[in-house]
Simulated scan of single mutants.
Amino acid sequence: MSDHATDPATEAFVAHRNLLFTVAYEVLGSAADAEDVLQETWLRWVEVDLAQVRDQRAYLVRITTRQSLNRLRTMKRRREAYVGPWLPEPLLTTPDVAEDVELAESLSMAMMLVLERLSPTERAVFVLREVFEVSYDDIAEAVGKSPAAVRQIAHRARRHVDARRPRRVVSPSETRAVLESFQRALETGDPQGLLDILAPEVVLVSDGGGVKRAALRPVIGAEKVVRFYLGTSGKTGGTITCDPTVVNGNPALLVRLDGEFDGIMAIHVEDARITGLYYVRNPEKLNRVASETSLTLR
């Protein structure tokens, strides 16, 4: 595209590319699929008569949403055959993402798992309205519904999300402090240290995709989670080390086993204890943690 920098269609697409990727990723939870959606969006965008386009940003978001919806319906069927729990593909994000509280919350593993409970149309409507503040009329154009229907879908989706979303947003500094305690206990194999930082009802979701060892169902309860972690390290005979990082705009850990990159650990914190652990080990989902991804609401 750089060879056609003066082409208006290319200039518009490049100007809004980070926004379009963010929309697609929020709807899909997969960076690889979001990139495919952007390619499909580009192919349709270059066929558009720009003279007839009143708002290029809105038009591009509309195309991206339609393509994301098509892909999400296909992904839903694909995920039914997925081995074990499915987690979003983690992204190493730029510092500005963490500074945007609204964006960071919407990208958190905990929130994206809540969005998984919505139907494809509900998810698209919720993301466009609540995260990107798109008008009901523009959302209606994107999802092929009337504005009145979109309002009803948005209300229903918001009710479902509010019933399951975290009770309050925890500051990055509080999350980092909890994460540091968890890291120390994990690296030293300290069961009491882990129990002290885990909430009694903590839930561990591990995603190995059938490629790497992971629990086939969520592990619920602090003692069971501790046994799972210490049992895993015991069976492998490996040494666990962690490096703090920022994934999806939130503090996380890059986990190594005997010095080899093993996965990404994200957490959810409430009342200074971990209530959610999200461990992505599937190698196919770890391609976007080596370099930063720029995401934006605008």
Score class of each variant (00 low, 15 high):
3 D>I: 15
7 D>W: 01
9 A>R: 15
15 A>G: 09
15 A>C: 15
17 R>G: 14
17 R>K: 09
18 N>K: 14
19 L>F: 07
27 V>S: 06
31 A>P: 09
32 A>I: 06
39 Q>L: 08
41 T>F: 01
41 T>M: 09
42 W>F: 11
42 W>C: 14
46 V>P: 07
47 E>A: 15
53 V>P: 00
55 D>L: 12
62 R>G: 06
64 T>I: 02
69 L>T: 02
73 R>D: 10
77 R>C: 05
87 L>M: 03
90 P>N: 09
92 L>W: 08
93 T>E: 00
93 T>F: 03
99 E>V: 11
101 V>H: 08
104 A>V: 07
105 E>I: 14
109 M>Y: 07
112 M>W: 06
113 L>K: 12
117 R>H: 12
118 L>H: 02
119 S>C: 03
120 P>C: 01
120 P>N: 01
121 T>L: 05
123 R>H: 08
125 V>T: 02
126 F>Q: 00
126 F>M: 00
126 F>G: 00
127 V>P: 05
129 R>C: 03
139 I>H: 10
141 E>R: 13
142 A>D: 01
144 G>C: 05
149 A>E: 14
149 A>R: 13
153 I>T: 08
153 I>Y: 09
154 A>W: 01
157 A>R: 05
158 R>P: 04
158 R>N: 11
164 R>P: 10
166 P>M: 14
169 V>N: 07
170 V>M: 07
175 T>N: 08
176 R>H: 14
177 A>C: 13
177 A>I: 07
178 V>D: 06
180 E>P: 14
182 F>Y: 07
182 F>V: 02
185 A>P: 00
186 L>T: 11
186 L>N: 15
186 L>W: 10
187 E>R: 12
188 T>G: 15
189 G>D: 06
190 D>G: 04
192 Q>H: 11
195 L>R: 07
196 D>Q: 14
201 E>Y: 11
209 G>H: 00
211 V>A: 12
215 A>C: 04
217 R>F: 13
221 G>D: 07
222 A>M: 00
226 V>W: 01
228 F>Y: 13
229 Y>V: 04
236 T>E: 13
237 G>I: 04
238 G>V: 12
239 T>D: 10
239 T>V: 07
242 C>F: 04
242 C>M: 14
244 P>R: 09
246 V>D: 09
252 A>V: 03
257 L>H: 10
258 D>Y: 06
266 A>I: 03
267 I>V: 05
269 V>P: 03
282 N>G: 06
288 R>T: 10
288 R>K: 13
292 E>K: 14
293 T>H: 13
294 S>Y: 13
